[in-house]
Write a protein that binds this DNA or RNA. Structure first.
Length: 225
DNA sequence: CCGTGATCATTC
DNA sequence: GAATGATCACGG
């Protein structure tokens, strides 16, 4: 485990030293073995990069680099720099979202400052041969924040009314709500339309790949790797 | 048990 | 093929 970086520039410099490395080379620095595939190791890449960069959060609800207020996200992309997956942001606080507002929301806190690390994400590339790309330090532009806020207001409004069961992944321009659970029978406490506590399937906020693709394009123009 | 790290797998 | 719904592992 690396020591935590002391500044944003130090973090960014350290991230730049990773770009170009294969997963095999990066994992070797930590004496890790690269899994053959991600079926039983879905968070492996993100956790490896956390360790390489000295992230401190350890799956608590705080920024990965707590002292710097920076979130770390690996972003699997194809050869054209298009994200091959949506990006998980945070869980939906089912029990309290009715009383919260955008400015204090978990989503805004998470996305205020993000260090994106593109990585090759195509399944046809063997895990050990995939490469890490150039890091992108990002904060939402005013347009991006307005988009996120609009989606959040829409989704939080529906959830706050107790109508989360009506939400599907189709809703939202940039931000969507989808299941986020151990399996389809998992339950959390939420509230129905009358404010009565009821059990719900756990959900998470996700960024659509169209949104993260725009981040990549703004940073590089084109190919990030 | 829950939130974080995500990707898998089925559907459209 | 892309997008939605379902799922897997780990740390605290």
């Amino acid at each position: 485990m690396e020591p935590a970086p002391k500044s944003e520039s130090e973090l960014l410099e350290r991230a730049r030293t990773l770009s170009g490395l294969t997963f095999f080379e990066a994992a070797a620095r930590l004496a890790l073995t690269v899994p053959a595939d991600l079926l039983h190791h879905k968070g492996w890449t993100g956790q490896m990069v956390e360790q390489l960069l000295g992230a401190t959060a350890a799956s608590r609800d705080v920024p990965d680099f707590e002292d710097l207020g920076i979130e770390l996200k690996t972003l699997p992309v194809d050869a054209n720099g298009r994200p091959v997956e949506s990006t998980f942001v945070c869980t939906v606080p089912l029990d309290e979202i009715a009383e919260s507002e955008w400015s204090h929301s978990r989503v805004r806190r998470k996305l205020g400052r993000v260090l994106w690390i593109p990585v090759q994400g195509e399944r046809r590339i063997p895990m050990a041969e995939r490469r890490i790309g150039e890091p992108m330090m990002w904060s939402p532009s005013s347009d991006q924040e307005a988009t996120l806020r609009f989606d959040w207001d829409t989704l939080a409004g529906i959830i706050g009314r107790g109508d989360i069961e009506s939400i599907t992944g189709h809703l939202g321009v940039a931000l969507q709500v989808r299941p986020k659970a151990r399996n389809a029978s998992a339950r959390r406490w939420g509230r129905d339309e009358d404010g009565v506590r009821v059990e719900r399937m756990p959900r998470g906020f996700y960024l659509r790949s169209s949104f993260t693709h725009a981040i990549v394009r703004t940073h590089y123009g084109l190919e990030p790797i």
